[in-house]
């Protein structure tokens, strides 16, 4: 493929626009529907509109809109990075894409083992979604990860995966694992099983939400402080809130960038640990060997009959 042709460049531009437009659309929607207020108010996600449903109305909130925009942006970014790939890398973006894929494959392989190597795209996807959702607060958007509904959805998905891979060792083994080491601990085991998605979602959402609350409170505190310190020069300079320039950015470095990235990494690591830890490897292999032996015996019996 000719990477210098006009058509190639036009497709490039279209893909980049596809990555940027959803984010810009989410910002525009936020700006257009924002309620002006002078006080600090810490509220949850803003509800854009409601759809009537049989059981209870379906709320389309800011968190859902932003997370959908982030998903679209990731999709188009991936298409952009893999556009025009060649056997011998000839562009920087292909090198970046290959680096990401290699790192992710290595991470999944060391953490989960050979059997789960197909998990790499899922882990990379959940990591990118979580990290970019948290980073969207840098653009002034509502970070979707500070809404429990979004994170709980991911955690329930992961819980389904954990249970699916635990059931691979047989239903009886799964049921028996609740009554171990002694049957007396059955209620405790059920509670600790249910606590997995709860703790995963609470950990992620609590970290991001507390960061945004502390940021909002500190921004308000700096406004008051600059009024107090500089207001004696003239009320005009006091009302400019000069201390709010730059200083909250240092905190944002920790709360938005470091904490958001760390929580994405932790969520992915815990997913890998829980899924591969719950999988009964030896039981699964024993069952597989048994099934294959049975199949073989059946086939041999059929052959003997035919002969």
């Amino acid at each position: 493929m000719n990477t210098k042709s006009r058509r190639f460049k036009a497709v490039d531009m279209l893909l980049l626009a596809g990555a940027l437009l959803p984010i810009l659309g989410a910002i525009a929607l936020k700006v257009l529907t924002a309620v002006p207020s002078t006080e600090i108010n810490i509220t949850g996600a803003q509800i854009y509109f409601t759809i009537p449903m049989p059981l209870q109305p379906l709320l389309i909130t800011e968190a859902q809109v932003v997370s959908a925009a982030v998903i679209l942006a990731i999709l188009f970014l991936c298409l952009y990075m893999t556009h025009g790939i060649a056997v011998v890398p000839n562009s920087k973006r292909q090198l970046v894409a290959e680096w990401i894929v290699e790192k992710c494959n290595n991470m999944v392989h060391t953490n989960m083992g050979e059997y789960f190597k197909g998990f790499a795209p899922f882990i990379a996807g959940i990591m990118a979604l979580s990290a970019l959702s948290s980073l969207s607060s840098l653009l002034g958007l509502f970070p979707p990860t500070s809404d429990i509904n979004i994170v709980a959805g991911w955690a329930i998905l992961v819980f389904g995966l954990i249970t699916y891979y635990k059931l691979k060792g047989g239903v009886w083994l799964y049921a028996k694992s609740f009554a171990e080491p002694v049957p007396f601990l059955l209620p405790m085991n059920i509670i600790s099983e249910a606590a997995t998605p709860v703790s995963m979602s609470f950990r992620h959402y609590g970290n991001i939400l507390s960061g945004s609350i502390i940021s909002a409170l500190l921004a308000a505190a700096f406004a008051g402080l600059s009024n107090l310190l500089l207001g004696w020069i003239s009320p005009f300079i006091g009302n400019l809130e000069l201390l709010r320039i730059g200083i909250p950015a240092v905190l944002s470095l920790y709360f938005d960038i470091f904490s958001g990235g760390l929580q994405a990494f932790i969520f992915a690591t815990l997913t890998m640990m829980y899924v591969s830890g719950g999988f009964p490897q030896s039981e699964f292999e024993a069952r597989k060997a048994k099934r294959e032996a049975k199949k073989k015996a059946k086939q041999e019996a059929k052959l003997a009959k035919a002969a």
Partner: peptide, 24 residues
């Protein structure tokens, strides 16, 4: 260490979530 720290942090975050719910 980071993985272990984050798991140890969970109980603290339960308290934090309850405090946030109680205030807001």
């Amino acid at each position: 260490m980071i993985t272990g720290c984050v798991i140890a942090e969970t109980t603290g975050l339960y308290g934090l979530v309850i405090a946030i719910l109680l205030i807001f």
